[in-house]
Design a protein around this nucleic acid. Structure first.
Lengths: 124, 124
DNA sequence: ATACGACTTAAACCATGGTTTAAGTCAACA
DNA sequence: TGTTGACTTAAACCATGGTTTAAGTCGTAT
C-alpha cells in the first residue's frame, strides 16, 4: 500500500495543494489519514475517491452536491439507489451541457469562416 | 426594422433582464438605443450581437475577453485578424473542454454501471 | 547547530458573475 | 385621477470556489 503526500496528490490530479485542503474542509475528502507529523497521507482508496471527486468537478457538479454524494458513500450501501439516481441525473446534465456547447461552437465556427473569407479578400 | 424591449430580448435568449443590464454595463452590448422614455430598445443588429455574446458566454468565455472582442468589433475592420485569431483559439479551448468533460463522463458512466449491477444483485 | 523545504492551521482575502434593493419615471387603463 | 406595470439608475449585496497570509512544526542535509 503506497501513500501519497499532498504535493504528489496535487500533481497527480493537476490541482493545487490548497484546493485539496479546501476540498477536505468542505467534506469532499473525508477520512484522510495523517502521518506522525500531522501531514496528510493519501491512500490508494483516497486517491480513488479523489479521482471520483475530480470527475464530478470536471463536469461542473457543485461542491455542495459532491458533498452530498460523498456523505451518501459514507452512509453505506443503503444509499446506493440515491447515488445511482444522482449519477444518472448528472450524466444527463453533462450531456445537455456538451450539446449546448456544441451548438454554440457552430456560431464560433461561422465567425471563423466569415473572418477567414474577409482576410482572403484583403489579400487579393 | 423591429425593435425588442429588454423583457423580449431577455426572453429570446433565456437571460434575466438584470443580466442584460449587467452586460451592457460591462461593455458587452454597446450602442444600445433608447426610446423617448429612456428604455432600452434592441435592434436586429443588437440582437445579432447579443446572439454572438451568448455563444461566447455559453462556451465559458470570460466577460473580460468577450469585452475585448466587442471592442475590436467597434474598432473596425483593422482588427479582423485579431478577432479571427481569438475565435480560433477559443474554438480550440471549447474542443478541449468538451474532450475533458467527455473523458470525465466515462467515470460517471462507470459508477452508473457499478450501482446498477449492485441494485440488481440486491433484487435477487 | 542550523537552516531549509515541505508541511500544518485558521482566518482573511479575492475574482467572477451576477442579483437585489431603493427610489424614481412614464404610459395606459379603470 | 390614481394606481398598476414595465421600465430606469446607482449602489449594495450575494454565492461560489478557491488563494493567500501569518505563524508555527517537523525532518533532513550541511
Amino acid at each position: 500500500m503506497k501513500y501519497c503526500s499532498i504535493s504528489e496528490a496535487a500533481a497527480a490530479f493537476k490541482m493545487s495543494e490548497s484546493m485539496l485542503r479546501y476540498y477536505e474542509r468542505q467534506g469532499l475528502l473525508p477520512l484522510i489519514e495523517r502521518d506522525e507529523a500531522g501531514r496528510r497521507i493519501f491512500s490508494e482508496d483516497q486517491m480513488a475517491l479523489l479521482r471520483t471527486v475530480n470527475c464530478l468537478k470536471n463536469t461542473n457538479m457543485q461542491i455542495k452536491q459532491i458533498k452530498q454524494y460523498i456523505d451518501w458513500i459514507l452512509e453505506g450501501d443503503t444509499t446506493i439507489e440515491r447515488r445511482l439516481e444522482m449519477m444518472k441525473r448528472h450524466k444527463q446534465a453533462v450531456l445537455d451541457e456538451i450539446a449546448s456547447m456544441t451548438e454554440s461552437l457552430q456560431g464560433i465556427e461561422d465567425k471563423i469562416t466569415r473572418y477567414t473569407t474577409s482576410m482572403e479578400e484583403k489579400q487579393s
